[in-house]
Nucleic acid binder design. Structure first.
Lengths: 343, 343
DNA sequence: TTGAAAGCGATACCAA
DNA sequence: TTGGTATCGCTTTCAA
């Protein structure tokens, strides 16, 4: 374990010069810089990050707080963040904060307070008042993916817009009996699902169509269960579904197949996400690319660390409609070209 | 930001005593310990981790290296690790090391060399010679989930055993035309899939049955594609499938449904994992509980940090067979009770 | 049981 | 352009 002192001695310079040569802060002649670098290389010198942090106050580490690690959206965001940080030489410390757990309390009250990071990325956190206070108290820049309810930099999908586009797509195809699957209500549950439900309702109202909202857990099995219920009654059955996300949409497609209801022949389904399984189920969906959102959040944070004065600009992403083969005109439509068959 | 000096002053003791009172190392009278603790609490004192690390050489941080974050197995392991570390007050720094990327090289050559952790957990890494060398060079305890090819503590599923059990289950049901789906060969690809293929082959050989191995990407869409190929030809079609993991198994079930082949009526499918989707597809499978493996690895590492002399004991887990409704006797079996219908 | 002081390993200011 | 040195905040040895 050679320290900077060893490097300095071997290069015939002082610690101060060695430090300047290695960090690039301050004037050093090109010749000595090179010599020091070479010596450091030969000695396999690796700076002690705790010593450097103590001296500078910076850690070259970013904290990431998320409520789930094992859901597609969160895992993708995390990979996006990781990729950018890796390029920039930053470490990533992960904090798992599942809603309503003792662990979450400890994360906010103990772990984050230690400030072992220069900045924080909060992903889909939906913090309560106390938690928000703690976040602010840390005194480090925070960027969030999906709204956090305050002025920090935010990267997020325009959820209402995405649901509007999804609903409009079905209306354009000629559907009138369109149900929304997922979430609880416009005033309860995660903000994401509320905004999407609101987008659906607004679009239906504007078109003068009746709304149907079916609650469901926001998971693939949840969508399956909800769809089995909804589609069971042939009379009441809608001709199209807007799902709050692709997992729910896929659950619904699987349910429809089990019930012998052809998709898109008798039932159209549109999701939001462009989940890794979407293509396999030929799902028409609105792409939100969580990986890019993560990468963008990381860039925003690094930018803020580099220019502390600057106010971060929020970013709102408009989802892109990807038409595959889970949507078609409703049954009985006089067809010019009816929806392409599923592979 | 009050430091330990402020606490000491406010409590009327020296820095040394304050430190002893707070860390619990060394003798302090109960009275002063309590007073110091109270004062620290009042002042909202949070120790500087870089200062503490610099002084002690320990970081209270654990590094986790994995090749994927967005796959079920890895995400589950990560949650298991996180949970244990959270309880013990350890931070978790995550390193993403995708095979064959420049990022992976940097993780091994630069990031890990900084040793910002007291120990490392390697999950499903399959390091090459150079990488293994780097891992050893770090000089910190390493525990791995899934073999790493050396003497470090290892927590892993007994993959060969799991595949043997899966195959035996089908044989017991009376199947003779049993194919294995997934992986590349016994000598290529990830160790996990090689071991499982080997288990299948050994069991088939012992029963004097012919082997069929169908290569497939180890993903749900991969299983789907492979199954479509395999099941297309009615003559060649097996009556049962052992899949290298549940995602492949589920892909195969979906393919069978699309092809109109009833499961388990005409085709039995058994997986390995007990994936979160397994129940929904009524999949018979061997449970491996990656979450527990992660938790166990974390405990093993903490144990090693506490007792540095001790040699870590490897842990091999035997998977438990969970029979659901994707397996039944082959078609044409004189039935007492034939496999339960799928819900 | 407590206190004084010497590190831990870098950075950065001030002089030269 | 370089070197000497104080400093970051805590832990830990040694004496008292």
């Amino acid at each position: 374990m050679s320290g900077i002192e060893d490097v300095a001695r071997a290069a015939g310079v002082s610690k101060a010069t060695a430090s300047r040569a290695l960090t690039g802060h301050g004037y050093v002649s090109a010749a000595t810089r090179e010599r020091v670098a070479r010596v450091a290389q030969e000695l396999g010198y690796v700076p002690s990050s705790s010593a450097a942090s103590l001296a500078t106050g910076r850690t070259r580490n970013i904290g990431v707080v998320m409520p789930y690690l094992n859901r597609w959206f969160f895992a993708e965001v995390l990979e996006g963040i990781q990729e950018v940080l890796l390029e920039s030489g930053y470490d990533l410390t992960l904090y798992d904060a599942k809603p309503g757990t003792e662990g979450r309390r400890r994360v906010f009250d103990d772990f984050l307070a230690r400030k072992r990071f220069d900045g924080l990325i909060a992903v889909g956190l939906e913090p309560d008042h106390h938690e928000l206070e703690r976040l602010v108290a840390i005194g480090r820049p925070v960027v969030s993916v999906v709204a956090i309810g305050d002025s920090a930099g935010v990267v997020r999908l325009d959820d209402e817009h995405a649901a509007r586009r999804a609903t409009a797509h079905l209306i354009e195809l000629g559907h009138t009996k369109i149900a929304f699957v997922g979430g609880i209500s416009v005033s309860q549950g995660p903000h994401v699902d509320r905004a999407r439900l609101a987008g659906y309702r607004a679009t239906m109202a504007e078109a003068g169509l009746p709304e149907t909202h079916v609650r469901s857990e926001v998971t693939l099995p949840g969508g399956y269960a909800a769809a089995v219920d909804l589609l069971g009654d042939a009379e009441r059955r809608p001709t199209a579904l807007v799902a709050t996300c692709d997992e729910v949409a896929i659950g619904a497609i699987i349910a429809a197949r089990r019930l012998g209801i052809p998709v898109p022949g008798s039932l159209s389904v549109v999701g939001i996400d462009n989940h890794e399984f979407a293509e396999m189920f030929a799902l028409t969906t609105l792409e939100q690319s969580p990986r890019n959102q993560g990468a963008q959040a990381a860039r925003m944070l690094l930018e803020q660390l580099a220019n502390p004065g600057q106010v971060p600009q929020d970013v709102s992403i408009q989802a892109r409609l990807i038409v595959r083969s889970s949507t078609a005109p409703p049954p009985g439509t006089p067809s010019v070209t009816v929806g392409v068959g599923v592979p």
